[in-house]
Design a protein around this nucleic acid. Sequence first.
DNA 1: TATAAATGATAGTTTTACTATTAAAGAAAA
DNA 2: TTTTCTTTAATAGTAAAACTATCATTTATA
Lengths: 225, 225
Amino acid sequence: MQSTLRPELNDKLYLRDPQATDLGRKIIGESVRLIDEVGFEQFTFKKLAQHIGSTEASLYRYFENKHRLLVYLVSWHWAWLRYQIQYHTHNVPDPAVRLRTMLGIVTRAHQDHAATTHLDEAALYRIVVAEASKTYLTREVDAVNRDGFYREYKLLAADMVAVVLEINPAFPYPHALVSTVLESARKQLFFAQHLPSLADAPDKAKAEDSVLLFLNHLVFAVLTN
Amino acid sequence: MQSTLRPELNDKLYLRDPQATDLGRKIIGESVRLIDEVGFEQFTFKKLAQHIGSTEASLYRYFENKHRLLVYLVSWHWAWLRYQIQYHTHNVPDPAVRLRTMLGIVTRAHQDHAATTHLDEAALYRIVVAEASKTYLTREVDAVNRDGFYREYKLLAADMVAVVLEINPAFPYPHALVSTVLESARKQLFFAQHLPSLADAPDKAKAEDSVLLFLNHLVFAVLTN
DNA sequence: TATAAATGATAGTTTTACTATTAAAGAAAA
DNA sequence: TTTTCTTTAATAGTAAAACTATCATTTATA
């Protein structure tokens, strides 16, 4: 899986490839645990260095700053989702079934436990839910976008748009629908945990299932109307 | 309008009521201009103090920190939208028409130019689009929520949920639908400006109209299915 | 006019987000 | 096996951010 996923990631995301060295892999693995624990705002390179027994200066040789590291982690997640989707849909002829599978994977209701990697995927997903918006809600969006840093997300969205159009070629807002669904998947999960009156998830522990039901209902109602 | 809006805002949002004093109103007015200009991350109390000819220490007497100030500004916006909605829907019998009006106001395609206040509403809306998520995407969500800081947003959402249920009382995900629409309204506008491949807004200048069309399509397709 | 409250001026602290320098360690090449 | 290159560690330092504290002064209020 590693060799399948790694080369996909834009090499501008980092200064030095973190997957290529021991320290680099420690940075990735431990940053996921730390950000999940303290949140992105409280997360600093200094703390991370302490956790892995290294120094701030060394970390700066891998990532320009912590924001870039976040973009890297989130991109890794999108690439990983995309891989899972391709794996589970590549020989499914019915586009509706494929879209359903996609939604399952995106909400993580359908989880792959098989190929576990060196990083804690569940923790990474929590990070994506709580922090992914911060990758683009900055003044530097346009500059960052120009460097292709949001490629993984766009590729995932494009794959879904293709299926949407296969189901309903006349649907006039495929891009908006897909990005709304992708954003909503995370937001609804976050709301279920923290602002439950904004969601419809009666059971916090099974929030992912409720969100999946909602999104399925939403998407298929819109596309078959 | 001021007297209608002001008392609605949770008084825990601030340390000293900014609407009650000259300095307070300057803080609100100028912070909207500054945040719109430099973005929330680059915005500091020091810069704001310089802009209004005051000092950092004085600003800290009004707001605990810049995050609370952002929550205040965003809450003001939600309260203001809610006021507009009530004004424009209070004697409209058809819930579908009311919902349509609500969506128009929420996307700001339908604008009220009449009651202009001491703050730049267009700038505030840009702030809401780009920064509102940051009001709840923090480690302190739960604590902040306990203090009722998200009340205005929830009230707005509740109003919309009521109309949704009036149109389709059997619809199983009214809260999720409404919060998805509210979030999507902002996100799609942001995407239209910065990541256009994630939106369906051919004309950047008229993004609000495209977003409104999309949301109307989405909501009524889902509710009448 | 006395008194309280709000603001301004000034200064100081801690933390963050870096950058720079030099030394040590390890790997690869000669 | 020595030389050379690259990577990391250790240490130190800077500028700015995010506050807090103190006290003088202005402004409002009783």
